[in-house]
């Protein structure tokens, strides 16, 4: 039953070691916490319907762009009028037309989202501790603690975060924390008619994704591979990983997503100190700017 999606149920603690970035204070919680959860997005069955984009906005009460959806112009870039993930758009469906001549080529579609990195740069740099790792091993921003400093925006190698134009704080996908905490699956995967987006325990998703790659390879789709599924890969693996059939850059994804820097003091630690020493906030912003510079110098960024 490939279409029977598992619904998140509180499950025994994962055998996986706690993510390195997990705050020490969360360690005791982790023992009783559910398994790490994530998204497997199989782009080969995406039909570009944008149901995920809309379901996400509806559930999370995100605003339409522009003047409440009015007076907007089309982008002219295939059927993509959203163009980027942002504080208002937490799922974004990309359309990549590859047609060297009329009627000859292919049209790739991919629903992009926050990768919920196992070693999340955004979380690392956040000076206020607004970005947390949840008991599901996902990454979430707490709006009430975010001071809008934008550090995370520059730190994310995938260009996921932006300031939400209503709240004025940094926002991104929470993997529907409110839904999964009560055993529901996130709005996007629930709405996806073809199960291009699958939600579930990471270990299970990895097995399923591996089998799907093997199936596609056997059916002749030799270019099929997984992006971000490897726990030994960049950023400790991505808890939202993808099945792709072309180079990562084609989808606007960095080939080697990197932590902004390795030799700086971890942002999360700083943020702990920062919580006591508000006077240091200015200095932290300065550091964040440096991180940005390092990142820009070090090559490709998402989108």
């Amino acid at each position: 039953m490939p279409f029977a999606l598992p619904i998140a149920q509180p499950a025994p603690a994962s055998p996986r070691p706690p993510a390195p970035a997990r705050a020490a204070a969360n360690a005791s919680l982790a023992a009783a916490a559910p398994e790490p959860m994530g998204f497997f997005t199989d782009t080969t069955v995406c039909i570009g319907c944008k149901a995920c984009e809309v379901a996400c906005k509806e559930w999370n009460q995100l605003p339409a762009r522009g003047d409440g959806g009015a007076h907007l112009e089309m982008s002219g870039q295939s059927y993509d009028n959203t163009l980027t993930l942002s504080g208002d758009t937490w799922r974004h469906v990309k359309f990549i037309e590859q047609f060297p001549e009329p009627y000859h080529g292919r049209w790739l579609m991919m629903s992009d989202v926050c990768k919920h990195c196992v070693q999340a740069p955004c979380l690392e740099v956040c000076p206020t501790g607004a970005i947390i790792r949840t008991e599901f091993d996902t990454v979430a921003i707490q709006s009430d603690t975010c001071n809008g400093c934008r550090d995370c925006i520059s730190a994310c190698p995938f260009g996921v975060i932006e300031i939400n134009h209503v709240s004025g704080t940094a926002q991104k996908c929470t993997m529907c924390y409110d839904r999964i905490s009560v055993g529901l699956e996130p709005a996007c995967s629930k709405a996806c008619p073809t199960d291009s987006i699958q939600f579930g325990p990471i270990s299970e998703l990895r097995t399923r994704a591996g089998a799907r790659v093997a199936q596609l390879q056997a059916q002749g789709e030799k270019g099929a591979y997984l992006y971000g599924a490897d726990p030994t890969g960049p950023l400790g693996g991505l808890n939202a990983f993808f099945l792709l059939v072309d180079e990562p850059e084609v989808y606007g994804l960095p080939r080697e997503p990197k932590m902004p820097t390795r030799n700086l003091v971890r942002g999360s630690m700083l943020s702990t100190i920062g919580a006591f020493m508000m006077a240091f906030v200015g200095a932290l912003s300065l550091r964040a700017r440096r991180i940005t510079e390092v990142q820009q110098a070090s090559g490709p960024k998402g989108e």
């Binding site: 605003p63 522009g66 959806g69 009015a70 907007l72 089309m74 009028n81 959203t82």
Partner: peptide, 17 residues
């Protein structure tokens, strides 16, 4: 509906290169 209007905001014609 704002969430649909923003996805395809304008009328277009698809023409070949």
């Amino acid at each position: 509906l704002p969430h649909l209007a923003e996805l395809q905001p304008e009328l277009f014609i698809e023409i070949g290169a």
